[in-house]
């Protein structure tokens, strides 16, 4: 088994060799490491992507807008991902962003995951019937269970989810009431012995 450290270093060096700047190569190394840490096919996608960019030039998206349409062969996931983490604090104001075609969407995932940590909000990434929920760069939940390879995602939707409970108030109350059963009812004598008892705070 390859260690994550090996995965990061080799991905970084390979990215440099594929023509990316050292700074971008560092980002790719970290991202592929993250994908593999989450059990997603980072090395596989990066390899395929590098083979394809030898033949085709994907579109770099330097400034991300609310709606982004690719005019050519689809967006490069690396360029898009780097722009995303660089601009994520602005992008969250849009609440949602759309992209018409993104190549190798798995390679975009770790950037979204890091973006989720930067802004402190969950990010929902959707295309076709697939959903990925990026949880503050701690985990990725998904309904995507297939082993097949995705080299293109047509209509991508990215939503910045507001921080709110994903349970009802009633559910919380029920659980809270149950937790109260670990508390001890205070008698008068216990109250007298509590910290600060008998003192006033008017000093």
């Amino acid at each position: 088994m390859k260690s994550l450290s090996e995965i990061e270093i080799i991905s970084k060096r390979a990215s440099r060799a594929a023509g990316f700047s050292w700074g971008i190569a560092e980002e790719i190394g970290k991202s592929v490491r993250l994908l593999e840490l989450f059990g997603l096919p980072g090395i596989k996608n990066l390899n395929q992507y590098f083979q394809e960019i030898n033949l085709k030039k994907f579109e770099n998206l330097k400034i991300i807008n609310k709606i982004n349409k690719s005019t050519n062969l689809g967006f490069c996931p690396i360029s898009l991902g780097v722009s995303f983490i660089d601009q994520v604090k602005t992008l969250e104001n849009y609440k949602k962003c759309e992209f018409s075609e993104v190549r190798y969407p798995f390679l975009l995932l770790p950037f979204l995951s890091r973006g989720s940590e930067i802004i402190g909000k969950r990010i929902l990434f959707r295309f076709a019937n697939n959903q990925f929920l990026l949880n503050f760069n701690v985990s990725i939940s998904s309904n995507f269970l297939q082993d097949n390879f995705l080299n293109t995602a047509k209509d991508i939707k990215i939503s910045f989810l507001e921080n709110k409970d994903n349970f009802e108030d009633l559910e919380w109350k029920k659980l809270y009431q149950l937790s109260e059963k670990t508390f001890v009812e205070e008698t008068q004598s216990l109250k007298k012995g509590a910290a600060g008892a008998g003192l006033t705070d008017n000093d």
């Binding site: 990316f20 700047s21 050292w22 700074g23 560092e26 980002e27 330097k62 400034i63 780097v82 660089d86």
Partner: peptide, 14 residues
């Protein structure tokens, strides 16, 4: 910096 980097990717590491 995000705008600067979009035009100066070669300097990202520094």
């Amino acid at each position: 910096i995000d705008k600067f980097l979009s035009e100066n990717s070669d300097l990202r590491h520094v």
